[in-house]
Design a protein around this nucleic acid. Structure first.
Lengths: 132, 132
DNA sequence: ATACAAGTTGACGTGCACGTAAAGAAAACG
DNA sequence: CGTTTTCTTTACGTGCACGTCAACTTGTAT
């Protein structure tokens, strides 16, 4: 397993985040880099999780919501009871995301209409200015 | 124009927000209810704007971003220069939303796959328990 | 007239997601 | 060896979006 551990600097560069952010996520138990002495080394698992974290953030999920989802993607040594709970949470989150997509579609349509209207308005105002 | 002015209480009930929120939005110039003496009366325009505000929030936009968008939906007496600026902002926001939808589609797919996997895992674990 | 509900303006408090500055350890370089 | 860079912990600061009092006016019911 070519786990290719990377330092905090490379991790930051790869995902465009600050060291502070990575340490903060660690305290929130979103990441768990290994320690070589004092320093952090991020694993393949950390990279996969960070990718999911940043994605979740783009959708407006809180870090706590994201943490719960990560447990589904990465069930490690979960108990059946806990797995079921995680499963339910994920199902709810999925429903949430599907609803969000519908709303997003609607919002995009509205904004497109509005942009069209704005364009026409700009054109007509520009005409007026020319003829003045 | 049946503008049907409503009080803060009805407004709160209709949109499931607190009075504090409405007052806060007013200070941020997202809403501009008329004043009868001391009290606020919310117009049809306020209701339309609040709907857009709440929608924007669901997508993770900041109130400031939302405020800029509202100006497009409600151009009132804008100058041509300002309208153009608003138009550009809205175009950028639209691009953002379209990108977000793509990412959301991807995330939904991933989560669906993961849910499937989780379901199978739960079933197999449940089998093990039964046979134990 | 008075009690009470509903609304108002400050002003301070809160949770989240980090930013930032201070002080020290540890590896890398000349 | 000393110096510079990189990383560390600790801790206080910040912006956003409100929540939560306190103190006050205003309309409504009894």
């Amino acid at each position: 397993m070519t786990d290719e551990l990377i330092g905090i600097r490379e991790m930051c560069d790869a995902f465009d985040v600050t060291p502070r952010t990575l340490r903060f996520y660690e305290t929130k138990e979103l990441l768990s880099p290994v320690r070589i002495g004092q320093k952090r080394l991020f694993t393949r698992r950390d990279r996969a999780r960070l990718k999911l974290i940043l994605r979740g953030k783009r959708f407006g999920f809180s870090l706590e919501e994201i943490r719960q989802l990560l447990d589904l993607y990465d069930p490690r040594d979960q108990q059946l009871t806990q797995l079921k709970k995680t499963y339910e949470i994920a199902k709810a989150r999925l429903a949430d995301m599907v609803a969000r997509r519908e709303a997003l579609d609607e919002a995009i349509e509205d904004l497109e209409d509005q942009l069209k209207w704005g364009e026409e308005t700009i054109n007509s105002l520009t005409q007026k200015q020319k003829s003045a």
